[in-house]
């Protein structure tokens, strides 16, 4: 499944970059994530719970940040296992300054699913991904707003 989109955040690029690199911030803004434990600078252990159409699962796995080019881009590699199937996603994230001190986040990647998740969830999963992305950026906007006030 293709994952792509973009969103403009009302914060300078450095601030956005730092927020993305901060696990406490990420847990707050990422829907479904309940734990994000730092292993080292670029590797985390993640626990999440997501409902995808007819199936719901508790996922556990790794989150890796690769090819870090501060503050412009990085690649997010997510591997999540659950009893209902596994997910592997590779997403390249770009941060661009778009004037007024705003930053545009552009992401582009692929997610592969397996097991029951693929068999019964595939039909609705891109819809779920879209709504999760929307929730993520809404929460991100809110965090920035909070920070600015």
């Amino acid at each position: 499944m293709k994952l792509n989109g973009d969103h403009v955040l009302k914060a300078p690029r450095n601030v956005v970059w730092d927020m993305l690199m901060n696990p406490d911030q990420l847990v707050k803004i990422t829907p479904g994530i309940s734990e994000l434990n730092k292993r080292d600078e670029t590797n985390y252990e993640a626990v999440s719970e997501v409902k995808i159409g007819p199936v719901k699962g508790k996922f556990k796995g790794d989150l890796e940040l690769k090819d870090l080019v501060k503050p412009e881009s990085f690649t997010l590699v997510v591997t999540q296992q659950s009893k209902i199937g596994n997910v592997k996603a590779d997403v390249v994230i770009h941060l661009d300054e778009v004037g007024n001190g705003d930053t545009q986040i552009t992401f582009d990647g692929n997610a592969q699913m397996s097991g029951l998740l693929a068999r019964t969830g595939a039909r609705v999963v891109s819809g779920v991904a879209n709504s999760l992305t929307k929730q993520f950026f809404e929460a991100f906007d809110k965090e920035i707003e909070l920070m600015n006030t």
Binding site: P54, Q112, M113, S114, A118, R119, T120, A122, R123
Partner: peptide, 11 residues
């Protein structure tokens, strides 16, 4: 990837 993506009566 070889996943059967319509393996239920919903699909």
């Amino acid at each position: 990837g070889g996943q059967l993506i319509n393996g239920s009566y919903m699909d």
